[in-house]
Simulated assay, not measured.
Amino acid sequence: MKISLRYFASVREQLGAGQDTLDLPEAATTVGAVRAALVARGGVWAEALGPERALRTACRQVMCGPDTEVADGDEVAFFPPVTGG
């Protein structure tokens, strides 16, 4: 399954990118699994998206939690709780 990723504010700054695509393993079917797959990349990914970071998520442009299911072609976004500008 292939999904689109969007990063905002400090997450975008840490990763040096505002968007990406990801081919997910078949077992990764939730927003939480997407985040875990990104953290598993290590380095700046683990720093920016690690479980100790307070982040908000959206799937299909709707705020959601880690148990929200994702489908092929969905967009998942990560951003800090307060964004501006």
Rank of each mutant, 00 (worst) to 15 (best):
G73N: 12
M1T: 14
G42A: 05
K2L: 12
I3N: 10
Q19E: 15
E26I: 07
A54L: 13
E69K: 14
V76N: 08
G84W: 05
Q14K: 14
Y7C: 13
A48K: 04
K2T: 13
S10D: 15
W45I: 01
L15Q: 10
F78G: 04
K2M: 11
V62N: 02
G18Y: 02
A28C: 10
A33C: 08
G32L: 08
E26V: 11
A36F: 00
D23G: 05
A58R: 10
A77F: 01
L49K: 11
R60Q: 14
G42S: 04
V11C: 11
V31E: 01
I3K: 10
R56A: 11
L55H: 08
G50R: 11
Y7T: 14
A36G: 02
E75T: 13
A37L: 07
G50I: 06
C64P: 00
V70F: 00
A48L: 03
A71H: 12
G85I: 02
A71I: 00
W45Y: 13
G16C: 03
A48T: 01
G84S: 07
A48C: 05
L55K: 10
A77S: 11
D67H: 11
A33Q: 14
M1Q: 15
F78T: 07
Q19D: 14
G32D: 01
T29F: 00
L24H: 08
T29N: 03
A27E: 15
F8E: 09
S4V: 07
G73V: 05
Q14D: 14
G85E: 05
F78I: 05
R35I: 04
L15F: 03
F8K: 09
R6Q: 12
A9S: 15
Y7D: 14
V39L: 05
E69F: 02
L5W: 00
G85A: 05
R35Y: 01
G65S: 08
A71N: 11
Y7M: 13
E13C: 03
L38I: 09
D72T: 09
A48M: 04
Q19G: 12
C64D: 00
Y7H: 14
A27Y: 10
T29Y: 00
R35D: 04
V62M: 08
P51A: 15
G18E: 07
T57R: 10
M1K: 15
A33P: 06
F78Y: 06
I3D: 07
G16T: 02
R6D: 08
G84C: 05
R53V: 15
G85R: 02
G84T: 05
A58D: 04
R35S: 04
L15G: 12
A58L: 11
V11L: 08
A9T: 13
L55S: 10
P25F: 01
L24Q: 08
V82N: 06
E47F: 07
A77K: 03
Q61C: 05
Q19M: 11
P51T: 15
F78M: 03
P80L: 14
G32W: 01
S10M: 14
A28T: 08
R56V: 06
G50V: 07
M63F: 07
A9I: 12
R41M: 01
E75G: 03
G32R: 08
R53W: 13
G18P: 00
A33K: 14
A48I: 02
G65L: 04
V39W: 05
E75P: 00
M1R: 15
L15N: 10
G85F: 03
L49D: 09
R6G: 09
F79C: 09
V34M: 03
L5E: 05
W45E: 04
